[in-house]
Nucleic acid binder design. Structure first.
Lengths: 193, 193, 193, 193
DNA sequence: CATGAATGAGTATTCATTCAT
DNA sequence: CATGAATGAATACTCATTCAT
């Protein structure tokens, strides 16, 4: 049986992702976790701290995965396709926390927005590094790595927003295939500049 | 001199976009507008209703602009580039309310998220129509209009998120040129499928 | 066509009697009367003053009617029966304002309760006088006039509460006949002490 | 020492009965009880719910008492006299909550009025049963049980209104003796029909 | 006479957080 | 570790009343 802290984390993830940070009360969380309020504050300094720790967790997951990818040094097209698939799978597996990270953080309040931009900057850096390498290797002819990240990351975000989060039971295979097609389109454009 | 209602609307836009829906209190809004609480409720049924009316306003603006574009029947590449520029200009001019529409709605609570998806669906439809026309005319060879919308709209969203909203004083000309470059890359990819 | 003041009075009577003093807002009243708030305060100093003036009006009505009855110097039984009928008819005709007078005044707040007791004391006095006369004339053998008023007035109040006010469309003839029967029962008891 | 909940209930009873439902604020109640606002809402869902629970409590008290009386199967005159005494004693002991039940409920708003009629209907039924039995046994000759209840209950209500609630320190013995006399008068009337 | 925009004190209710047990 | 009673500042919203036009 899961511990009180784990149950609190699970409940928080689910409720934050469903109802949003503000509309989720500590009361909601402890009730759903079946523990007392005192217990909540034994494990977490505050509601905000819990939220931020979820964000941190998700961020570290994505970063780790992305760094692993970088080490493989795949050709860019393969890398972009493979990573897109892994990313979508990952996001789907961690839907709740991912929703918080990708779409709640920016829109909730000033502090969270800043946190978002800090975390995202890190991820963009990693992606930029990957693209830069391909530019150096002459794999593509459009050489603005930052803007390539805009195209690629914007596309992935859109897929997540429109398919993974919007639909109750997303057809992940279809989303992955959309991702693959999209990246191919993109890559052709990058090569033929 | 501006009327009480106008001042309330301006204050609300600014504060919602800065601090977010929940972190902005009616107190904040009326204080910033220099009117009493009673006046707020004389003009708006509730904080929520005011928020939603701002969203509606922005939505109608974007739809109108997009419909105008559709009527022009430009070649797709030109249309995508021109619309991107107009869109970015527009979003910049209406930064506050646009921030609310594009990034707060999804992340705030369940009701707002549903509202977001409803509004966005409408915009995606219009874009899809534009792309479909180009497919019929043989302008491009990748024929999944929906996915092209994912690529294009995702890219624009990312530009807004990373440049227009992130930076205090965004260099709009640079963003537009990134947009133009990105669309060209994309279009090449679409043509050479 | 009725004047603004009359329409305000009518609306106030109806709304106060239906929803109660506190649950009826000045807004409700002016809306239902089709006039502006300014007009309300042109004719009435305050919501409370309007309410009290309605109470005063009803009180004067009942007092006048009762005094007329006293002058007739009927035998007690006839007087009690006749007055009961007239009273019920009257209350029915002025249902709204009567509801306010008889049942809202006591239960609403301290000030109104005191007002109620003052007004009611006056009515009880008149009734006591009527009964005293009958005692002096030897018409009845139970000689506690105050308690007779308790029996009689309590009975009438109960009829009003249970039949005139409770039912949407009260059968007034039936209520009057209940009143007549009840008074006869009462009178027999008074005579045979 | 009494618990926070008990103190809240006591304060609420007293204040509601003195100032009325609307004129008593939650602030008033918690201040008088010496607890915080949060504590109020820890124990009661709302001001209205607390009010209704007081009503329910009083209603159950009266019903229980009345049912006990019914079981005794006393001759009607004795029953009416004995019950009147017990009722007055009871009402006096629970003055505050009784005032709420008997005189505030009807006059406050629509919802409470309906609640009043529901509760009172129950009490009238029990009394009617008691009277019906006496009619069947031939104890009285006036056979309209419902109207007898009107006479009896109206009389008791009037005693409560005029003596128990009106006076700061009511002379309960005198009220009980008025009740006894009144019932005797009534009973003679009923017998000699 | 009449309007309706504007006021601001007041109200019920929420909720993150604390702490004695 | 765990509980849950208690806190009180904060919040959205109401409403009687005023007053310039």
């Amino acid at each position: 049986m899961s511990s009180a802290k784990e149950r609190l984390l699970e409940s928080a993830k689910r409720l934050f992702s469903q109802k949003g940070y503000y509309a989720t009360s500590v009361e909601d969380i402890v009730e759903s976790a079946g523990v007392s309020k005192g217990t909540f504050y034994f494990y977490f300094k505050s509601k905000e701290e819990l939220f931020k720790s979820l964000v941190e967790e998700m961020h570290l997951n994505i970063v780790k995965r992305l760094e692993n990818f970088l080490e493989k040094e795949l050709p860019l097209e393969d890398a972009l396709i493979e990573y897109a698939k892994v990313f979508l799978e990952d996001i789907y597996q961690n839907r709740h926390i991912a929703q918080i990270f990708l779409f709640q953080l920016v829109g909730t309040n000033e502090e969270f927005r800043e946190l978002y931009y800090t975390k995202i900057a890190h991820l963009r850096e990693l992606l930029t590094k990957m693209v830069d390498r391909a530019i150096q290797k002459g794999e593509i002819n459009y050489k603005n790595a930052e803007n390539i990240v805009n195209l690629y990351a914007g596309f992935l975000r859109m897929l997540v927003l429109e398919y993974v989060f919007r639909e109750k039971e997303p057809d992940l295979e279809r989303v992955k295939s959309l991702a693959q097609e999209g990246v191919k389109v993109l890559f052709r454009g990058l090569k033929n500049a």
